[in-house]
Computed example of a mutant assay.
Amino acid sequence: MDRVFEEMEFLARSANRGDVLTLVAEAPHDRGALAAETGASQPTLGRILRDFEERDWVRATEAGYTATATGRLVAAGLTELSESLTAELHLREISGWLPADDLGFDLKRLGEATITTPTQTRPSAPISCVIELIETADRVRVFSHAFNEQTLAAVVEWVADGGQFEGVFSAAAIDAVAHETGLRGQLKQLYAAADATIRVIEDDIPLAVTVADDTVSLLLRDEQGRLQAAVDTDDSDVKTWATARHSDYWASARPLDETDLAGDT
């Protein structure tokens, strides 16, 4: 293990080392090309390449320096680590609210996601972000443990304008809406709409996820249920996960019916 840490330290001491190894793993480069792409001086490149040749990570060819099989192995690990750390730094502010067990995709896929958090002037900014996505979409699929007032009102209006809505909600979420007179009326409008279908699942749904056309939005809450962030991405892997999870919930849920809308009446 000590030798592993020594090699990690060797690479970490100079950003140029990682850049050079990654470049020659992608394609042969001569020293001029490496200098142009990394900004390293020729003496620095000479030392780096000699160190790499001693480790048998690179070899000189007529086409330029190229990575060996083990050099490509190390370069791939560097790339993966770089992507992981890039994503971690991007998500660090909201890491405490990301579920540890309920995400069926690599967190690196959120490395370029748009993160919206509440502010003093815009405390409902995450919800507003989701509503904006809904209002510009043709088809929206949702699975969630909550159906808040702002989103419900926006969905009712959007469906009336021709949007297609397919929502799966926990029974607790539907019950909470049905027990509020004003919200119950909006839910009834949605229930009656031709382009809206709502299904109910008795089990808890740990995440609130919206798939608006090709964009996925995750609403993150703290342990007290307070909304902390919206995370939006058009990453294809995240969309594949979200649509598959929606399909699973949809298949195990039952249709919303009149008894769900009774509330206290």
Rank of each mutant, 00 (worst) to 15 (best):
6 E>P: 07
10 F>C: 13
10 F>P: 11
11 L>Y: 04
12 A>L: 14
20 V>P: 00
24 V>I: 10
33 A>C: 02
35 A>T: 08
35 A>E: 11
36 A>F: 08
43 P>T: 07
44 T>N: 05
45 L>H: 07
46 G>T: 11
52 F>E: 01
53 E>I: 09
57 W>V: 02
57 W>P: 02
59 R>S: 08
60 A>W: 10
60 A>C: 06
65 Y>L: 03
65 Y>Q: 01
65 Y>C: 00
67 A>D: 07
67 A>V: 10
70 T>L: 06
72 R>F: 01
73 L>Q: 12
74 V>A: 06
74 V>D: 00
75 A>K: 07
77 G>Y: 15
80 E>W: 05
81 L>T: 13
83 E>C: 05
88 E>L: 12
89 L>Y: 07
96 G>V: 10
98 L>I: 15
100 A>D: 11
101 D>L: 07
101 D>M: 02
111 G>R: 01
112 E>C: 03
114 T>N: 00
115 I>Q: 01
116 T>H: 01
120 Q>A: 12
122 R>T: 09
124 S>E: 14
125 A>S: 08
128 S>I: 01
133 L>T: 09
134 I>P: 00
137 A>S: 14
138 D>T: 13
139 R>N: 10
139 R>G: 06
140 V>Y: 02
141 R>Q: 14
142 V>I: 14
145 H>A: 13
145 H>Y: 14
146 A>E: 15
148 N>A: 07
153 A>F: 03
156 V>E: 10
156 V>T: 14
157 E>D: 12
158 W>M: 04
159 V>Q: 03
160 A>H: 11
162 G>P: 07
165 F>I: 01
165 F>T: 02
167 G>N: 07
168 V>R: 04
168 V>A: 09
169 F>E: 02
169 F>L: 12
169 F>Q: 03
171 A>F: 08
171 A>M: 08
172 A>W: 12
176 A>M: 08
181 T>F: 12
181 T>K: 12
181 T>Y: 10
182 G>I: 06
183 L>Y: 03
187 L>K: 04
189 Q>A: 08
194 A>I: 03
194 A>W: 04
197 T>V: 15
201 I>A: 13
201 I>P: 02
203 D>H: 14
205 I>R: 04
208 A>M: 11
209 V>N: 04
209 V>I: 13
210 T>S: 12
211 V>K: 00
213 D>H: 07
215 T>M: 11
219 L>F: 06
221 R>G: 04
222 D>K: 08
223 E>M: 09
224 Q>Y: 09
226 R>D: 11
227 L>C: 05
227 L>K: 02
229 A>H: 04
231 V>W: 03
233 T>F: 02
235 D>S: 12
239 K>G: 01
240 T>D: 14
244 A>H: 14
244 A>Y: 11
248 D>E: 15
248 D>A: 13
248 D>P: 00
252 S>T: 13
252 S>L: 12
264 D>S: 13
